[in-house]
């Protein structure tokens, strides 16, 4: 995700020589804001992700609120407790993510690796439990509108967990290959923001699908 910007001086990996150009390089761009470009980019991306969830929540609102369908659909049951445990798993992964970032800032390499790895495993566990729930829940997306929006919202969130896991995988691989320093940990920080967003979004999804 770390898309580079010409606004920053080249950050070279250890042991690499600066690339020479057949022309003179770009002038260094002025930094007109204290906000980091990649941080800002991720925030904007998250805004747009929230709106995507907004579209699905609109569907939820219409099916449950306007059409006034029974919730959950007659004859079906949502495993509130299991999903609650799953929620706890996902929330705890936010803390391990934070731990990983703090470790990177304090040059604690072991903590960074352990933090990222734990976060990744917790996230993967969440996804596995979610898939298991789909298998045993007893209704399909095509059975009724309540089923459609149940699978729609949890599936959309699951897809985001998957993307988050992919980003975490990149960060973990890089951590194990010796990247990230107290000064340069954007590759942990930016996926971390995304991961926190995925967690917070799950709380909303859990509350509206299972609890309310």
């Amino acid at each position: 995700m770390e898309s580079a910007s010409v606004s920053f001086p080249a950050r070279l990996e250890p042991g690499e020589k600066p690339v020479t150009h057949d022309h003179h390089g770009p002038p260094e761009a002025n930094r007109s804001s204290r906000v980091d470009a990649q941080f800002l980019g991720m925030l904007l991306f998250i805004i747009s992700e929230i709106m995507l969830f907004g579209a699905f929540f609109t569907a939820y609102f219409f099916i449950r609120g306007v059409a006034n369908e029974a919730w959950p659909a007659e004859g079906t049951h949502l495993p509130v407790a299991v999903a609650g445990v799953n929620t706890a798993i996902l929330i705890s992964s936010s803390f391990t993510m934070h731990w990983a970032l703090e470790s990177a800032k304090n040059e604690n390499r072991a903590g960074l690796r352990a933090g990222l790895l734990t976060t990744f495993l917790l996230g993967a566990t969440f996804l596995a439990i979610q898939v298991n729930e789909y298998v045993h829940i007893g209704f399909a997306p095509g059975d009724h509108a309540q089923g459609s929006i149940f699978y729609g919202l949890t599936g959309l969130h699951g897809a985001h967990v998957f993307v988050g896991l992919t980003l975490l995988l990149f960060a973990t691989v890089r951590a194990f290959r010796g990247h990230f320093t107290p000064k340069d940990h954007r590759g942990v920080e930016v996926p971390g923001i995304y991961w926190h967003f995925v967690d917070i979004m799950w709380i909303l999804v859990y509350a509206s699908i299972y609890v309310l």
Partner: peptide, 19 residues
């Protein structure tokens, strides 16, 4: 085969237009 816009299955047609 979901029923978001199928009134027979509990969906809502006007919802599409709002979104």
């Amino acid at each position: 085969g979901t029923h978001f816009f199928n009134p027979g299955g509990g969906g809502d047609v006007v919802m599409y237009q709002h979104i």
